[in-house]
Amino acid sequence: EDEVKKIVKRLIENGVDDEQIKEIVKRQGVDERIVDKVLKELK
């Protein structure tokens, strides 16, 4: 989960929008619920 957080944070800093972040992270095989949780925490 910490790995996911790092990735998502980097994507947000690069101006990637939420939908794209979800797609990218899902392609890495991460559960969507984890992605949603991380996005909420970082906003």
Rank of each mutant, 00 (worst) to 15 (best):
Q20T: 15
L11P: 00
K22S: 03
V16T: 07
V25H: 02
V4F: 04
K6A: 14
K5W: 13
K40Q: 12
E1K: 07
K37N: 05
D18H: 12
R27K: 13
Q20A: 13
V35N: 00
G15A: 03
Q28S: 12
V38Q: 02
D17F: 06
K40I: 09
R33L: 11
I7H: 06
V8Q: 00
K6F: 09
D36H: 07
G29N: 05
K37Y: 06
V30G: 07
I12K: 12
Q28D: 07
R27V: 06
K6R: 14
K43Q: 10
E19R: 09
V38T: 03
V35T: 05
R27C: 06
R10E: 15
L11I: 01
G29T: 02
K9T: 08
E1M: 13
V8N: 00
N14D: 14
D2R: 07
K22M: 12
R27S: 13
E1T: 09
K26R: 13
V30Y: 15
Q28E: 08
E13S: 09
K9C: 09
K6V: 10
L42K: 01
V16E: 05
K22D: 01
G15R: 04
K26S: 11
R27G: 12
V35L: 12
V35M: 04
K43A: 10
I21R: 00
L39M: 08
L11K: 01
K5G: 03
K37S: 06
G29S: 03
K26Q: 10
L39I: 11
K6P: 03
I34G: 02
I12N: 02
D18Y: 13
K22C: 03
K26D: 02
E19H: 09
K5S: 06
E23C: 06
R27I: 07
K43T: 07
I34C: 02
G29Y: 03
K6E: 14
K22T: 04
K26M: 15
R33N: 12
Q28G: 09
D2P: 07
E23N: 09
L39Y: 03
V38L: 12
E23T: 10
D17E: 10
G29R: 02
D18K: 09
E3Q: 10
D36V: 12
E41P: 01
V38S: 02
I12A: 06
I24G: 01
E3W: 15
K9L: 14
R33S: 14
E3P: 04
V30W: 15
R33P: 04
K6M: 13
Q28I: 15
D36N: 11
Q20H: 11
D18I: 15
E23W: 10
V16Y: 15
V30Q: 04
R27A: 15
E41C: 05
G29D: 03
V30R: 03
I21N: 00
R10V: 14
E13Y: 09
Q28W: 15
V38M: 08
G29E: 03
E32G: 11
K26V: 14
D18N: 09
E3L: 11
D36Y: 06
K9H: 09
D17Y: 05
K37E: 06
E41W: 09
D2E: 14
L42E: 02
L42T: 03
K9V: 08
E32W: 11
D2M: 10
K26L: 14
K26P: 01
D17W: 06
E13W: 08
K22W: 07
V25M: 15
E13C: 04
V25A: 09
K5C: 05
K40V: 07
K6Q: 13
D17N: 13
V38H: 02
L39E: 00
K37L: 08
G15W: 03
D2L: 10
V38C: 04
K22N: 02
G29V: 02
V25C: 11
E19P: 05
V8P: 00
R27H: 09
V16S: 05
L11Q: 01
V30E: 02
E3T: 09
V4G: 01
V38A: 05
G29C: 03
K43I: 07
E3D: 11
D17G: 13
V16R: 06
K40H: 12
I21D: 00
I34Q: 04
E19W: 12
R10N: 14
G15Q: 04
E23L: 13
N14W: 13
I34T: 10
I34P: 00
I12W: 14
K6T: 10
R27E: 08
V4W: 07
I34K: 03
V35I: 15
D31G: 05
D36W: 07
E19F: 10
D36A: 12
E41V: 06
K43N: 08
D36I: 14
I24R: 04
L11M: 07
I34H: 04
N14Y: 12
R27D: 07
K22A: 05
D18W: 15
K9W: 11
N14L: 15
D18R: 10
E41I: 09
V38F: 07
I12D: 01
V4L: 12
E1D: 09
D17R: 10
N14Q: 15
D18Q: 10
I7C: 06
G29P: 02
D17H: 10
L39D: 00
E3S: 09
V16P: 00
V25N: 02
E13I: 08
I24A: 04
V30N: 03
V16C: 08
K9Y: 09
E1Y: 15
L42I: 10
V8E: 00
V8S: 01
R33F: 13
K37I: 07
V30H: 13
E1V: 12
E32R: 05
D31T: 07
E19S: 10
E41L: 10
V8C: 05
E3R: 09
I12S: 05
R10G: 14
K43F: 08
D36M: 12
K37F: 06
K37M: 09
G29Q: 03
L11N: 01
I24V: 06
R10S: 14
D2Y: 09
I21E: 00
K40Y: 13
G29W: 03
I12T: 04
I12Q: 12
K26G: 11
V4K: 01
L39K: 02
R10Q: 15
G29F: 04
E13L: 12
Q28T: 13
R10F: 15
E32D: 09
V35C: 03
R33Q: 12
E13T: 07
V8Y: 01
V30A: 07
K26N: 05
R33M: 12
Q20P: 01
R33G: 11
I21C: 03
E23R: 11
G15T: 02
E13G: 06
D36T: 10
K5F: 10
N14E: 15
R27Y: 06
V8R: 00
L42C: 03
E32A: 12
V16M: 15
R33I: 11
V38E: 01
I24Q: 06
G15S: 03
I7N: 04
Q20R: 13
I12F: 10
V16I: 14
D31Q: 06
V30P: 01
G15K: 05
V35K: 00
K43L: 11
K5I: 12
K5M: 11
V16D: 03
V38G: 00
V25L: 15
K9E: 11
I12C: 03
I7R: 06
K6D: 12
E19K: 11
I24T: 05
Q20N: 10
K5P: 01
E13R: 10
K5H: 07
L11G: 01
E32Y: 08
D31M: 05
E41S: 07
V30I: 15
L11A: 02
E32Q: 09
V8H: 00
D2S: 10
D17A: 13
I7W: 15
R33T: 12
D2F: 07
K37W: 08
I12P: 00
K26F: 06
R27T: 08
V38W: 11
K9G: 06
L42S: 03
N14R: 13
L11R: 00
V4I: 14
Q20S: 13
V38N: 01
K43E: 06
K43S: 08
E13P: 01
Q20D: 11
E41Y: 07
V30C: 05
K5T: 07
Q28Y: 15
L39N: 01
V16G: 02
L11V: 01
I12L: 15
D36G: 05
K22E: 02
E41K: 05
E3I: 11
R27P: 02
V8F: 02
D17C: 10
K22Y: 11
I24F: 09
D31P: 13
L42F: 06
E1Q: 08
I7Y: 11
I12H: 08
L42P: 01
L11C: 02
N14K: 14
N14S: 14
V30T: 04
Q28P: 02
I24W: 10
R10H: 14
Q20W: 07
K37A: 09
L11E: 02
D2N: 09
E32H: 08
E1P: 07
K6I: 11
R33E: 13
K37V: 05
I34M: 12
D18M: 14
V35Y: 04
L42W: 05
D36K: 07
L42N: 02
E19Y: 11
E1W: 15
V4H: 01
E23Y: 08
K26C: 09
Q28M: 15
E32V: 12
K40C: 06
